[in-house]
Nucleic acid binder design. Sequence first.
DNA 1: CAGTGGTCTAGACCACATC
DNA 2: ATGTGGTCTAGACCACTGT
Lengths: 253, 253
Amino acid sequence: MTTPKHAQLAAVLRARIAADDFPDGRLPSESELMKEHAMSRTTVRSALKELQNEGLLRSASGVGYFVRRFEHFSYRPQDDFRAVATIQDADSFTQAAAKRNPTQQIEVGIVRAPKDVARRLRIAEGDSVVVRRRYRSLDGVPYQINVSYYPLDIVSGTDVMVPQDIVRGANQLLADHGYAQVRALDEIWFRMPKPEEARWLDIGPGIPVAEHVITGFTADDQAVRMVRVILPGDRNVITFDRVHPDHERASRP
Amino acid sequence: MTTPKHAQLAAVLRARIAADDFPDGRLPSESELMKEHAMSRTTVRSALKELQNEGLLRSASGVGYFVRRFEHFSYRPQDDFRAVATIQDADSFTQAAAKRNPTQQIEVGIVRAPKDVARRLRIAEGDSVVVRRRYRSLDGVPYQINVSYYPLDIVSGTDVMVPQDIVRGANQLLADHGYAQVRALDEIWFRMPKPEEARWLDIGPGIPVAEHVITGFTADDQAVRMVRVILPGDRNVITFDRVHPDHERASRP
DNA sequence: CAGTGGTCTAGACCACATC
DNA sequence: ATGTGGTCTAGACCACTGT
């Protein structure tokens, strides 16, 4: 009933990482750890793998192991709502990221609604929906995958279907067509990425993603928009501001 | 430039899992996979490890490998705010979970404020704060770790310092002492659990956690409460309702 | 008891980065 | 050329679970 050797080494290294004991962020090589701790390479690698899967380390083939550094960018879903017509697509991502060279790659299409989309938009599974898929980066680093779904009859013939930035912003566009959104439901899961997501977001092992699903409703309580945002955990903090329902609107910092 | 054998096996199994090809949820044993795919045990184990770290599989020593099943419980931070005096501590967890045998273990103490707490409560690092640590379960299954911090001068001598349920609810208690909260800031990170968190929440490999930090403010914009909630990703969805700031309050479903 | 996964070893070859 | 991590093998012992 003793602790396995690989777990012992993992614990030692975890403590040293927490104590910032690798100032240059570089760990000893596998062979050095083998000598220092009198273990086989397999056991050393097992310990290092464990730390990688905790998101504490990354490995570079032919180079070495390094302590992960995080920089979190604030993701504010509420900006979607506050957005007004500006020269840019004025949602949370574009607005907050103005100075960090935001780029995005847009694909637009018409597909049959999958089950989860149909349920949220309150349409039948297989009904046609317009889908806008956006892969968005900051300074060349991918920060989110954003997939929006709209019922076809609502947006057909509008700029939503053009694979370019929507100058007014998608919400303003919907409002201009008589579908102003006054309420949104946010659902957030957090899980490990699927292989395609990991590839697109350039995520290493041990880094989870959040899946943020927004459903937008009109004053008539009609669901007119569903968005699925995939966020890599090493680069995002999700932020909300809330005021008590009984309290008049407060100023926002 | 070919795909490694372990990755090939992982891809095959991943596809079979997605197609629900293991009706009883049980995978072939390691030795069966070795025969079927003509690989060494190490390679087979490497593939299975990969899928475990994606949260798709769990292993049971001496038994086998199984497909993970998820059941997500809705975590609604806004209930904290809407809470009024009831017979129970009326926050999001207790209220929503009433029928699922909620239990919690409470520890209360006075500690020196760590850096992140001090910053959010706008006090000096090392100032005394009251900390309430709650480990909360549903039907015996751990669902969250909830750690609340209060500036000592605000809550000293109140029920906050008693290691029991606060009958009125902590927010109502603060309000009764003249510190009604009207605004909250939510910050949500998602990452792999620390070993203690994994132990307490009974999390296997490949399951991330969300760290939800709430900071509560009075009408004078004084920070009176900071809460850190740790949520296991296989058992929680975070849910928010939002109404457009220009729109009168809508009814909530 | 037989079968399962967990641990550990020694050794080999490879692709890659660095100097 | 050397050193790094990535892949793969064969074999061994163990603890545990099921019958």
